[in-house]
Design a protein around this nucleic acid. Structure first.
Length: 293
RNA sequence: GCAGGGUUAGUGAAGCGGUCAAACACGGCAGACUGUAAAUCUGUUGGCAUUCGCCUUCGUAGGUUCGAAUCCUACACCCUGCA
């Protein structure tokens, strides 16, 4: 897809974890007076800084960041809530005459904004808890009884629950991205991405995720942490319980992060409106060309 | 040196004469996914053909048997007990 010829009103940067999205966003923001909105389902949590590779306080001081630290660990959040938040911020930033830059690896969050998903209503209070007590078979039966569309995969309990919660309603979306949107994708080749993930994992441990995990666990409890925390924290909890040692923890983190990156790749692959670049440098040059016109 | 246990696909680990290309777990690969998404789930995973099927695997080399990952012999390596 050819990039729009006029100056975009929204820049979106997507890609797998550790592909260099933040770096690119920061450079573009600094040069063109942009403000960053993180579309990331983990950096929304307060206190989860090191383990989520959240932009540092210095970076946040250089460029305004939004979408971070929205809720406490253990609290639920959703793609629908993110969409509202992001749209509000995009509006504010635009009105200030600055460039909104939506950056993230959470495909659902990004697409919700970009393709204007209309999310079916949330579950009624307490509904989820009772549905989750049912067996998969019972959930399937419920879906069939009510003639709701069966999720493509009938073994996916979570999707079954959701179909019931939204009373079989299908969400709608726009076929084309929001007008004026430029979507840049970062996709290093496999070997490079693996390397980046591996070295970043080591860095994250060097910076002290273990201590961070301890603090979070003390403040919010292991249960809250397990229910909302991302990849590293779960591994660090095992480390703190002495089930594994540090080297194993790093190894586990690297492979889990790679698996995550692949899921992200699968998600973004089907979006034909993304213009892909192998690294942030090349992407930056391309973006520069477009924004200078 | 003697006695015993072990060596199975990328890794761990079942199998102990036929229904074994070999359970299971992990890892790998492909995919799905609109109010949990760093989540959750599916398929696939020796090679070739991809319909019947064919070929090469279970430490190495021989042997027994209609038939062996499974039994026997020798060798190699690893672990344990006695020396």
């Amino acid at each position: 897809m050819a990039p729009p010829t006029q100056r975009p009103s929204l820049l979106v940067i997507v890609g797998p974890t550790a592909s260099g999205k933040s770096e690119l966003a920061l450079r573009v923001a600094k040069r063109y007076g942009g403000e960053i909105i993180a579309a990331d389902s983990r950096t929304i949590y307060k206190g989860m800084d090191i383990g989520t590779a959240k932009p540092t306080s210095q970076q946040q001081a250089e460029v305004p960041h939004w979408g971070l630290n929205l809720v406490e660990p253990g609290q639920a959040y959703s793609a629908a809530r993110f969409k509202e938040h992001a749209l509000g911020k995009i509006d504010e930033i635009t009105r200030r005459g600055r460039l909104p830059i939506l950056v993230g690896g959470t495909g659902l969050y990004v697409d919700g904004v970009v393709f204007d998903f209309n999310f079916p209503p949330p579950p009624a209070f307490g509904e989820r808890e009772s549905l989750e007590k049912l067996s998969s078979k019972e959930l399937q039966n419920l879906v069939e009884e009510k003639k709701y569309p069966m999720p493509e995969n009938r073994h996916n309990r979570r999707h079954l629950v959701r179909v019931i919660e939204r009373q079989g309603k299908q969400g709608e979306k726009q076929q084309m991205p929001k007008p004026g949107t430029l979507i840049i994708g970062l996709m290093p080749d496999e070997e490079q991405l693996k390397k980046r993930i591996a070295t970043r994992a080591v860095e994250i441990f060097d910076k002290g995720v273990i201590t961070e995990t301890q603090k979070l666990s003390a403040k919010y409890g292991e249960k809250a942490l397990l229910s909302t925390a991302g990849i590293v924290y779960k591994i660090c909890l095992r480390l703190l319980r002495k089930e594994i040692d540090k080297d194993e923890a790093i190894w586990l983190f690297q492979t889990a992060d790679w698996q995550y990156a692949r899921r992200q790749r699968t998600w973004f692959k089907r979006n034909y409106h993304i213009t892909w670049y192998p690294n942030s440098k090349q992407a930056y040059q391309a973006v520069t060309k477009i924004l200078n016109t």
